[in-house]
Design a protein around this nucleic acid. Structure first.
Lengths: 105, 105
DNA sequence: CAGCATCCAAAAGGATACTG
DNA sequence: CAGTATCCTTTTGGATGCTG
């Protein structure tokens, strides 16, 4: 399902990173802490296949490949932002719930 | 991260199932196709720990345990709905993108 | 009924080395 | 630079049997 691609560990991070604008492969790798090249390439491939990210190759040496959100990608990333913003705004309440749960359990 | 709990394979399904109101363990198991008891119990535990779902035990034999969304849970499920609704509304465009990708790749 | 414990298979993910 | 290929570890998830 597409939701899986978007909400997957690296999917969220790639999409939100691309909100800043076009980024090249190594820029994404450097910005997204902890991602391996393998997972970044794999994640980008599924997002490109879903039509959420556009991949552009400049035929030069060394190769330059840049990625950017498509209109479709911007739409879904906006919805995703609604979710992540909510989580950030309610992080305190959630942490409190977890602490209470752990204390009683 | 909380996003992982919510967007995890069964997390989405449990939360949206609970939009219908209180449900008992076996009702969730029956409504959510393909979920094992192990994964259902595990998913419910993390959602309860995050304060998104309330767990209520009736001390009778046989035991009755029902689950419902908390205020926090309703908030996050609403945002999640924004995302899943978007995906449903744009499914056609996404499938077309995938088909085009597969045809050219 | 509502789970937990155990064991096992499958999939995700990381490290490293290599290529056009 | 932008990946791919390989190997290995970790995580996830299913099946089954058991308990209060």
């Amino acid at each position: 399902m597409v939701l899986d691609h978007v909400s997957a560990r690296w999917g969220v991070l790639v999409l939100t990173a691309l909100l800043a604008g076009d980024l090249r492969f190594y820029q994404l790798r450097d910005r997204i802490e902890g991602v391996s090249e393998k997972m970044l390439a794999q994640t980008l491939r599924t997002l490109v296949r879903d039509g959420l990210v556009h991949r552009e190759v400049e035929p030069v040496t060394p190769p330059q490949v840049s990625y950017r959100l498509t209109a479709l990608g911007k739409g879904i990333t906006a919805r995703l932002g609604g979710l992540t913003d909510w989580i950030r705004d309610n992080a305190e309440a959630i942490l409190a719930a977890q602490a209470a749960y752990d204390a009683s359990g």
